[in-house]
Nucleic acid binder design. Structure first.
Lengths: 144, 144
DNA sequence: CAGGATCCTTGAGGATACTG
DNA sequence: CAGTATCCTCAAGGATCCTG
């Protein structure tokens, strides 16, 4: 489970919550949260996922991504692609032809996102179909 | 897979679906992006995950969460808890004792986040150690 | 075509003070 | 103790124009 012994005993939770938690100390417990937050921080931008999924289908040029990821501006696409490249998710391939053609491809590392995206997608679907309390929605359902 | 069946069948790409199929009309695939984005949108706040992880072990009072989730202000905790409650992740239990005690517990629905958090955590860990840097700002690494 | 440079908007999140 | 009410900051993202 996700918290450490200290956190557990602080509340005297029942044993079935513990699982392997007793192996963790408090700092480990925090270290467990950090990667999750790091992953979220990187993915939670508005465009990273759409771009990655767009590239999942194959190599794309700037203008193609621009068309596929609807609503993105050139500036944002440029920034996000650079960010994705810097972090090793996409590779930039420059063809020195008459009009310069730049292709972007997903790296193998980028493809390691699959389980994450799958988990998010599955949960997102069930989350989406659940009309919580009827009060309000946390996220705006946009129809693209 | 990340491609919708429609996209796959449209080109009969089966296992090799992502190679040269970037001309696919994958508007259907947008429907796969949305749940992912919804999930991310909900989770990507600064405090939802820490709060949820704090509650993972059992009931907590406001002040306990406040102490465990480092750095959060009362205002943010109040807002986030309300948001989590509205969306069915957390249940608010008011004990009419003296002094009034309010406990928050994770609902079963909230616990469905486990695969998501697990996936994010695992990937986040590898993401953290894999690229040339940990932060978003960095110099260009080598071409892979 | 493939972006970069500038400036601007917006809203998530923070600080502080107050209350039942 | 368990929150609200105001006000404020700051950075993600957007609009627009420019260029090799």
């Amino acid at each position: 489970m996700l918290l450490c012994k200290k956190c557990i005993f602080a509340r005297k939770v029942s044993a079935h919550f513990m699982e392997d938690s007793h192996k963790l100390d408090h700092s480990e417990c925090q270290n467990r949260i950090r990667p999750v937050k790091e992953a979220l921080a990187f993915l939670s931008g508005k465009w990273k996922l759409p771009i990655i999924l767009s590239l999942w289908l194959g190599n794309k040029r700037f203008s193609e991504i621009s068309k596929e990821v609807n609503g993105i501006t050139d500036r944002m696409l440029s920034k996000e692609l650079r960010d994705l490249e810097i972090n090793g998710f996409v590779k930039r391939v420059i063809h020195d032809s008459y009009p310069v053609v730049v292709e972007y491809i997903l790296t193998d590392y980028g493809k390691t996102l699959k389980p994450v995206i799958d988990a998010l997608g599955e949960w997102g679907a069930s989350y989406h179909s659940r009309p919580a309390n009827g009060s309000k929605r946390a996220s705006h359902p946009d129809t693209e």
